[in-house]
Amino acid sequence: MGERTDLVKRDKTHPETTRRIPKVRPLVDIYECDNEILLHADMPGVKKEDIAIDIDNGKLHLSGVRGIKAEGAANWVEFGDVEYVRSFSVPQTIDLEKINAELKDGVLRLHLPKSEAAKPRQIEIKAA
């Protein structure tokens, strides 16, 4: 019997939740230049205070919750409350202190500046 319990073991470790919001991956564009990496994420309806950006151990975790105030009889509903979740690996060369983000028209713009040491440098050749 010992083997059997091992085989049918399932993940039942999740704590009880009263209401589950679906998790969605926001669409992102990522740009890079010599000075920084820039990330644009579509997060319609998410308010500034409902966005959490965590960086831990080289992982950037982006999360934004949106709630819709729905009143009246719905004729059709194509979207609802969601949590936008996405994780990225951040290279070592990013200066974590200087990361900043702005939110406009439901698009999150995250600036990840590169540290001085990681920026490309032009080496001057000295005449002998």
């Binding site: 926001p26 579509d42 319609p44 009246g72 009889a73 059709w76 509903v77 979207f79 609802g80 028209d105």
Partner: peptide, 25 residues
């Protein structure tokens, strides 16, 4: 989210309708 048109919700509030559409950016 890759739909080519934004998703919408339509609510009937008696006196008026309310349309909500996702238009990020």
């Amino acid at each position: 989210v890759t739909d080519s048109v934004p998703r919408t919700n339509l609510y009937d509030k008696g006196e008026h309708f309310e349309i909500l559409a996702e238009v990020p950016g």
